[in-house]
């Protein structure tokens, strides 16, 4: 009897006691028979499952849609600030790029204290934040929208209050927590900022993680906890995130 017939008989439970004993002994000493059994077993499961096939079809459709996008929307480097909500993306990415560029200058080119680096970074951040019109936001969630408006005007204390109210209703809102962390940074409440960013990092992964880790590192720079800052910066570099380059420069300055 060839192996396929034996395997089929085995899986159908139609072997006699002796055949079964012999088959099991063969399995012990014949790795190829084990592999044949594995393959035979997996055929039904794999052919029956349509998940992968369906997912591949969806990916092909998505890629077709991606190719139809204007080039400027498909040729960007992968900024970690990008989130799934385009309206948020506009403000955060524009700000981040200019912030990081200037931070790079201040950190990599000039020798400055931790505080000086941080203060210049914070000024840069606030002056380069792209203002967004009210109409850009979808209806609802006015409080978060209002908080961001206050934030962009530099009213961090009131903005923080709005974000806290959002969080009191939805503690898992990582956008509110992230912006609230930034407000704390402006308000020199670094321990609170650290708590916010660290909390985000304990939550299921989202695009805000890379930003949270970066700003967390900067908080530690600001409070002169260089060891923790270095460890975080090293993680950012290892993560190969879009902050890797600037993290490398900051790390070099801290050494």
């Amino acid at each position: 009897m060839n192996s396929i017939s034996r395997i089929q008989k085995y899986l159908d439970g139609k072997m006699s006691e002796n055949e079964l004993k012999e088959f099991r002994e063969d399995l012990q000493k014949d790795p190829e028979l084990v592999q044949e059994l594995d393959l035979y077993r997996s055929l039904d499961r794999i052919v029956a499952s349509r998940d992968e096939e369906r997912f591949r079809k969806k990916l092909s459709q998505v890629y077709a849609e991606f190719k139809e996008l204007p080039a400027e929307k498909t040729e960007k480097a992968p900024p970690s600030a990008r989130k799934l909500n385009k309206k948020w993306l506009v403000a955060v990415s524009a700000t981040l790029i200019s912030t990081l560029s200037l931070l790079f200058y201040f950190v990599a080119v000039k020798k400055e204290s931790n505080q000086a680096i941080f203060e210049k970074y914070m000024v840069t951040y606030s002056t380069n934040l792209t203002l967004r019109s009210h109409a850009q936001f979808e209806a609802g969630k006015k409080r978060l929208e209002y908080g961001i408006q206050l934030y962009t005007r530099g009213n961090y204390s009131d903005a923080s209050q709005q974000f806290k109210m959002v969080l009191s209703e939805d503690s898992e809102n990582q956008d509110a927590r992230f912006y609230n962390g930034l407000c704390y940074m402006y308000l020199n409440e670094f321990q609170s900022a650290i708590t916010s960013f660290e909390y985000i990092l304990t939550q299921p992964y989202s695009f805000v993680h890379e930003n949270a880790k970066f700003y967390l590192a900067l908080c530690y720079v600001r409070i002169n906890n260089n060891e923790t800052a270095k460890a975080l910066l090293q993680e950012i570099i290892s993560d190969n995130s879009s902050h890797s380059d600037i993290a490398q420069k900051v790390l070099e300055k801290l050494r």
Binding site: R54, F55, K58, Q61, V62, K83, L84, N85, E138, G140, K141, L144, V166, D170, E172, N173, Q174, D175, A176, R177, Q203, P204, Y205, S206, F207, V208
Partner: peptide, 18 residues
């Protein structure tokens, strides 16, 4: 809702096109 932070992994599981 659009302001809730995105659970990326769950969205891939759900094959979310966007």
């Amino acid at each position: 809702n659009p302001y809730e932070q995105y659970n990326l992994i769950d969205s891939i599981r759900k094959e979310d096109r966007a």
